[in-house]
Design a protein around this nucleic acid. Sequence first.
DNA 1: GCCCAGGAATGTA
DNA 2: TACATTCATGGG
Length: 286
Amino acid sequence: MIIQSKNFNIQQIADSGQCFRMNKIGNNKYSLVAYNKYIELAQVDRELVEISCSSQDYDEIWKEYFDLDFDYGIIVDRLLRGPDEFLRKAVQFGDGLRILKQEPFETLISFIISQNKNIPAIKRSIEKICERYGEQKEWNGIYYYTFPTPEQLADAREEELRSTGLGYRDEYVIKAARAALKGDLNLGALKDCCYKEAITQCKGLRGVGDKVASCIALYGLHHLDAVPVDVWISRTIEKIYNYNFDWEVYNGYAGIVQQYMFYYIRNIRNGSLMKDGGEDEIHRKA
DNA sequence: GCCCAGGAATGTA
DNA sequence: TACATTCATGGG
């Protein structure tokens, strides 16, 4: 079905580093596996996206998944009219970004895997885990694998997990799956508490620090105040702002601001930005 | 072959 | 508290 929405660009979302199972399959076309479903997305026009799903699945899953009840234009306009030149350019560049509401358990495992890995390697590992521990399903002749449940992952053997390229993270993944299964970590409940508490709880898991916990809070629990600070964000705070940046200015949507920032610095000039250049270079190219 | 990756745990001062 | 080192593997 065709969805009309402002600030909804599937290419930008696919390349925003928040999800790992959204892949380009053609011109302005992407596939996505989430919530045990496979869909294809096509950017028909600037404000038109075609989703290969029933109206029932749209109402029950995808409308929520893409956060389509929220008007990101409010945030975009506010930043465009704001005093921060770097952020003005960042939102212009990524004005179709949205914060997805991904499955908490998948988000937890995915970002545990993400530590000290590049995005193609993360995707590859996750896909192998789905093939080995998830379920095979079919949609219109296309076979895909669901992301494993905590039960399916909890009794995996470490050596078997290793073959998916996890490296030393294998024990982290198993322990997290068992914690989710036993209820030591109740991800569902963490949606309702404040973001700081959610981050603290997630950090109780081995292999989960501030950054990964913030990713879980933002992308899996939709705590918009959670701000994942990875190497790129911290490089930006250093080189663009000279360590002078206050997230509290953006109270209530700091995580979204972080997303515009991340997408901008990662994707402008082919990603190899400000290794030793800094502010001048970034603005010249912008 | 080399450097780095949407980091975290551990050790050292 | 503030850095430095180590970790296993793959992409570019």
